[in-house]
């Protein structure tokens, strides 16, 4: 996919965005964006799933746990689902989950929900750029990434030895993969 290096903030913060997309519409649309050589931010890592109906709220939580600053969930427009109704079910679940995140203090602006069809390469580009810009503005989601650095007993920091230090650095997972091999 064509990519531009887009420092979205003067301090050079590149938000990490995980996108969960359906195989039939958005993934194909993103592919079209690539083959059309549309220029867009390179911060998004796509995970392809059969259908938005297969996308669980836990995917979003896990992405945040593992260092994502923002998440995109995208699939077929209403009435276009390859499995007839997967996106309708997803719409109900994410309608609720978005409100739940908001209530728990997770800024819902970090999560973009969109319908992108196989022919909407240009819309995918916009979704990506707008999400990256918005999340860049919000800054890194350290509040979530560092949650395990705050293990507590009785509401206060526990005497555990690693509690203060852990989660301070979140190196690029792709670099670590190299290390792993």
């Amino acid at each position: 996919m064509a990519a531009t290096d887009t420092p979205m903030k003067p301090d050079g913060f590149h938000p990490r965005i995980t996108a969960f997309v359906c195989n039939w519409c958005t993934y194909t649309g993103a592919d079209l964006a690539g083959t059309s050589r549309l220029q867009m931010a390179s911060n998004v890592r796509i995970i392809r799933l059969p259908c938005t109906g297969r996308i669980d709220h836990m995917f979003i939580v896990k992405a945040f746990e593992r260092g994502a600053d923002g998440v995109i969930v995208s699939g077929c427009h209403p009435a276009d689902c390859h499995y007839t109704a997967g996106n309708y079910h997803a719409r109900r679940r994410f309608g609720v989950f978005r409100e739940l995140m908001d209530f728990m203090g997770i800024d819902p602006q970090r999560v973009t929900f969109s319908w992108v069809s196989a022919s909407e390469g240009a819309k995918w580009k916009d979704v990506v750029n707008e999400t990256v810009a918005r999340v860049a503005e919000l800054g890194p989601f350290d509040a979530y990434h560092e949650l395990a650095g705050d293990t507590v007993t009785g509401g206060e920091p526990a005497p555990g030895p690693f509690e203060a230090a852990s989660g301070a650095e979140t190196p690029d997972p792709l670099e670590e993969l190299e290390v792993g091999r």
Partner: peptide
């Protein structure tokens, strides 16, 4: 399963959802 806030958020978000 750890009761650090990361595990606790995942649990309570899921329980509620």
């Amino acid at each position: 399963s750890s009761s650090h806030l990361r595990g606790n958020f995942a649990w309570h978000l899921t329980r509620a959802q």
